[in-house]
Design a protein around this nucleic acid. Structure first.
Lengths: 249, 249
DNA sequence: GCAAAAGTGTTTACAGTACACCCATGG
DNA sequence: CCATGGGTGTACTGTAAACACTTTTGC
């Protein structure tokens, strides 16, 4: 398959790191390989890209075939192309990650599903995965933690209604550090990206928490304005934080 | 070349957005195409990846063959793979950018060099480039402006000895905004990433400026510590700016 | 002496951080 | 009435931002 000095004798695939959040842990969807190479090892879902298929389309296809979920957050991260990364030939792979709400997840055909499992990311990274999937998973996790500091992508991982504590736990999990409850709430609520649903949790053995919803319209409005918070800002404020961002975080 | 339903009938290339800084402008190195398709248009330097060549190696090769420069800053940015992006077949391309000191640049064979030119980035983005190179250039420029806010990559674009004003102009060019001279100097010098060479500019028709050098050792030391500024920081300070980074810039 | 860029400190305002107690519910 | 997590406000502090004049050199 490889070995001759000939272009157009290689292939490319997409691999999709599908993240979910459940029971306080960030998880990733893995497939147990039924064939060689790496038979029996866990691997990221992926597939060769069809000749008439765009890369993003291929990544969406892999996701939907596996989970049945459409319309998810998907982002290309990096392309891995070490000569020896695939034992059977020259195959480079374009790595994506997606963020899904595990509650939306309906695994396909049961015979298939028994080889598909959510794994805790921390554990999966340390275990031996097929191909170069350890480094791909690590790279995509890094990209996610970086992304979450810049854009409110975290909401993609939560169910439509959530409590502030759930949201905080998600961020703590992504940022790998504990956050102060009062400061977290102050910050989040000040962005007016949440809609108070005036509903309460039910069936919890303690004071029920308020439920919130992500305000997508508000988010898109802010994004279009470069997050300059038009309502609160003076001209002075707009220029603030520019030098702050200079060079070092 | 394309059209059959057959994998391993596609190819991948690297394209390299080579940035330089000169006369106060950010520039990009372009090649005028001598062959179809897109004959006569300016294009990013790039090449097909050899069957036994890693992706990064290919990107370095393209750079060195063109400029004679080694050991530069190089970063993979994004992979472009629209089905119709190359008129002659299915060719996806992995886009890189590199940062070079224009002073190091020694164009290769003169017959070749007449088709190689530095273009001002702003102008090049607006002009019609070959293939999908407009969007590739734009994407790489965005990646650079993002990167420069996080890591001091700007120094890669300056000659070994530079003045603070030159450094400020570079940052103004990359960030597309004017900076306050006193605040800029205060911030930069406080990071102790610069070495005062105790030398002055010569032959300038005004008060000569001091020359500085980038302190690479200090930078690597800080990087290894996650830029936590060990000398100045208390434990409290270490936790600072964490919530700040939450969600929105 | 004049043109041109270099160099230099202080004040103000905002935003992040630290921190502790009462509340509502189920059992 | 107890256990569990939900919910709330203030004082402090560090850093970014705004801002104007003097200095040095070449011509």
């Amino acid at each position: 398959m490889n070995g001759e000095n000939n272009f157009f004798k290689s292939a490319f695939s997409v691999d999709n790191v599908i993240f979910g959040f459940d029971e306080g842990d960030l998880k990733v969807l893995l497939i147990k390989r039924g064939n060689e190479p790496y038979k029996g090892l866990w691997a990221l879902p992926g597939d060769l890209v069809y000749p008439n298929e765009d890369l993003d389309t291929a990544a969406y296809r892999v996701l939907e075939e596996l989970t049945g979920i459409k319309n998810v957050y998907l982002e290309q991260v990096h392309t891995f192309g070490a000569v020896d990364r695939h034992p059977l030939g020259r195959v480079i792979t374009i790595a994506y990650y997606s963020l899904v709400k595990i509650s939306d997840f309906t695994p396909k055909a049961a015979s298939f599903a028994q080889n598909v499992e959510w794994h805790i990311v921390d554990t999966a990274i340390k275990s031996k995965l097929a191909f170069d999937h350890n480094i791909i998973l690590q790279t995509c996790f890094n990209a996610l933690t970086h992304r979450v500091r810049i854009r409110p992508v975290g909401f993609e991982l939560l169910p439509p209604k959530f409590t502030l504590t759930e949201l905080q736990h998600l961020y703590e999990s992504l940022l790998r550090e504990e956050l102060d409850k009062r400061n977290f709430r102050k910050k989040i609520l000040s962005m007016s990206l949440l809609i108070d649903l005036n509903e309460l949790q039910e069936g919890v053995p303690h004071r029920p928490a308020k439920l919130y919803q992500f305000n997508k319209e508000r988010y898109q409005q802010l994004e279009a304005q470069g997050f300059s918070f038009e309502v609160k800002e003076s001209k002075k404020k707009e220029k603030k934080q520019r030098l702050a961002a200079l060079i070092l975080q």
